[in-house]
Structure formats: structure tokens, C-alpha cells
Design a protein around this nucleic acid. Structure first.
Lengths: 201, 201
DNA sequence: GATATAGTTGAATGGTCATTCAAATCAAGA
DNA sequence: TCTTGATTTGAATGACCATTCAACTATATC
């Protein structure tokens, strides 16, 4: 009946994530996208609709993967707070100077800052993803509080935002090109912030 | 002999800061720059050389102003740590939802994240500015330690980076569109981090 | 092997990008 | 008033932008 698709949509999308994460929306031209995906414009438009929609899908894919990784990380720990602290350590390592990732900073934050006053739809998407992450952090902290890991006076909504701010900042600082020692130390110091909200057994 | 310049270079540069801070490098076209500065391309190029050089000057001007404001802020306080904590509070207020500023987030951080993999010269400039701020924070913290405001085990280099990360994150979180209450609370929580490094009298 | 159909191709489109420069404009000295 | 030279103007430039689409290719069924 018909011809097979030469390209795997998911594979192409992951390549797009790599390019957009590295160079941002405005910094990635269709020429570069064609090269990165090894697809001609017609195929790209037939598959993804437009540069905007491709970026939007790439951002969603990036966020979903990040969410899965964080959830998988927390599952490894009996203590939620231990898990969150180690998440910061892991992040400090993984976004170090010799990372293979396209960029040290978070693609969601890069998108938010790039698009907040130029591309409101993209900014709205980045915002809703960040709101979802904040919500997930709050849920984890609520659970930690239920388990008695956190002091009674801890405000989990505020703490979730404080924690999210640490993650955003750790990776933005990594983009500055800090050494892995400096980055690890920063991760340690950020993780230590949680100790102030912990119960002492 | 000759004609007078119709434009004040400094005034034009401040207008450029406003546009670039709001929309970033790629997000600001020459058309928009012409409109913002009320200058025609020939005059802009005669005065500033190129879009790149104009942006570079704008970023330097922004950073210098920010540095002056921070220094002026710290001078108001007898205690350096008090000054730093109140700096976070002030920032939480000034980058709130109804700020007049072109953007809530910091122009230096926006530039770093936008240009790190697309425009190495700009990224290098943003990096050196951030390194200078880190150094200034370290100097302030060293002095605070000398005065006995900080505990003996405090590592001022690490603390400077932790503090810089807070400032960057506070303003990036502001770009998310948090309410002023949420932003103030975040500023409070960030300021409270310093209490853990403080001496108790 | 003919046909139908899904997928790919890449030249062409019209728009916008940063930048240039010859001509016009203005003010002060001669 | 005329000359001189700094300054402004805006149309023109060529490059690159995202996007389209008619022609072409490959596969599967009959």
C-alpha cells in the first residue's frame, strides 16, 4: 500500500531536544534542525507541523524525562529528605564541567528566561511545567512531614519553592563553568539547607 | 564648524538596556532597537558600531548599575550579614509582579543562558561579570567574618557562591510570575540560610 | 508488473535580519 | 552669506529566516 517512514519520530524528537536544549529557540535555525535530525524541511513539517510545535514537543519530552528521573531517584530512598538531598548531589555531579549533556543549565529555565517577553505561549508552557514540578516537590515534602521527617513548623509550599530555586540555581551556576569541586560544594551547601527543616532523632 | 549630536549617548544606552533586558539579544531586532532609541540605523552604527557592541555596552552598563546599587545597600548597615539579608528582601520586593523593570529576572543570567552555546563572546562577558560579583560577595563575607559575624568554620568562597545562587534563583523564580507574598516568603527563606552561618551573641 | 498511497525531497517563496552608504541636514566659522 | 564638516537619514543590500508544495520515490497490495 504505502511507503515506510524513514525516520523514527521519537528518535528525531530526542535529537531536537538535544539541539534546542543546547542553543535555545532563537539560537536553533531550521538549517541546524535539518542537520541535527537528518531530515529535509518537508519531512520535518509533515511530522511536527512547525518549528514552534517541534520546540514545544521537545520541551515536553525533556520535562517528562526529567520528571521520571527525579521520581526514580526518590524511590531509591527510605527517607524522602535523604532522597532530595542526594538528588542535589547527583545533579551537582551530572551537570559538571565534562558532562555529555547539551547544556549544563535546565532547558525549562533557559526557555522561560528566553521567551518570557518574546514568546508568550512558550513561556506559558515553561511556567506550567515549573508549576507541576513545584507541586510534585510539595507532595513529596508533605509526605515527608507526615512521616515525621520534617519539623511541625515547616511550610511545605514555601519549602518546595525554596528547593526548586536551589535546583534551578545549581544548574545555572554550572553554566558559569564552575569546577566540579565548586559545584559539588555548592550542592552540599544547598542540600544542607534542608537540615534546618529536619527533625532530630 | 559642525552639527550637534541630536542624541545623548548615555540616554540612548539606557534605552538599549531596557530593550535588551526585556527581550534578550536574539529577541531584540534592529527594527525594535531603532524604535526604542528613536534613532535611525546610520546613527546607531555611527554611535555604537554594531548590535553586538551595543548589547555588550548595555550589559556592562546594567552590571555597573547593579553593582553600585548593591554597594549602596550594604553601606546602610552596620552588620554586613544584616545588609545581605535585607538585600534579598529588597530584591524580593523589587522584582515582584508589578515591577516597572523590563524583566524580573537578571539580565546577566538571561544573557548567560541565552548565549552560552551560541555566542561565546557574550557568554564570556556574562561569566566575567558573575565572577566579579562572586568576588565582591566573598570580600563582603570575609569582612563579616573578620568582624566576628560569621562562625569560624564558614567558608566564605563557598558561601559567596551559595549566596549568588540565591540571588539568581530568586529573580528567576520571580520570572515564573509568583505572587508578591510567595516571593517575599522565598526571600525570607533564602535570607534565613545565612543564619546557619552566623555567630550567636 | 501495474496501481495506489504514504513519505521524502529540495528548490522556491516572501519576509525579516543586520548592515552600509550616498545624499540630505544642520550649525558654526569665515 | 557661503563654506565646511560633523551628524542624521532611509532606501538599498545580500544573507538568512521559517515555510510551502509540486515532483519524485519507495513500498505494499492486487
Amino acid at each position: 500500500m504505502a511507503r515506510h517512514a524513514r525516520y523514527d519520530r521519537k528518535v528525531a524528537l530526542e535529537k531536537a531536544v538535544g539541539l534546542f536544549w543546547e542553543k535555545g529557540y532563537h539560537g536553533s535555525s531550521m538549517k541546524q534542525i535539518e542537520h541535527a535530525l537528518d531530515m529535509r524541511p518537508g519531512s520535518i513539517y509533515a511530522t511536527f507541523g512547525s518549528k514552534d510545535r517541534l520546540f514545544s514537543e521537545a520541551l515536553a519530552s525533556y520535562a517528562e524525562r526529567g520528571g521520571r528521573e527525579m521520581a526514580a531517584h526518590l524511590e531509591q530512598y527510605d527517607s524522602i529528605v535523604d532522597g532530595l538531598q542526594d538528588y542535589l548531589h547527583t545533579m551537582a555531579t551530572s551537570c559538571g564541567p565534562d558532562t555529555e549533556a547539551p547544556s549544563r543549565a535546565c532547558m525549562i529555565v533557559k526557555t522561560l528566561l528566553e521567551s518570557s517577553n518574546t514568546h508568550s505561549e512558550l513561556a506559558a508552557q515553561a511556567n506550567s511545567i515549573l508549576a507541576a514540578i513545584e507541586h510534585a516537590l510539595k507532595a513529596a515534602l508533605d509526605q515527608a512531614k507526615d512521616r515525621g521527617e520534617l519539623i511541625a513548623t515547616a511550610d511545605c509550599s514555601r519549602l518546595a519553592r525554596l528547593l526548586q530555586a536551589q535546583i534551578m540555581a545549581l544548574r545555572a551556576m554550572a553554566e558559569r563553568g564552575l569546577t566540579s569541586e565548586q559545584l559539588q560544594a555548592l550542592g552540599d551547601d544547598m542540600a544542607a539547607i534542608l537540615n534546618g527543616y529536619r527533625t532530630h532523632h
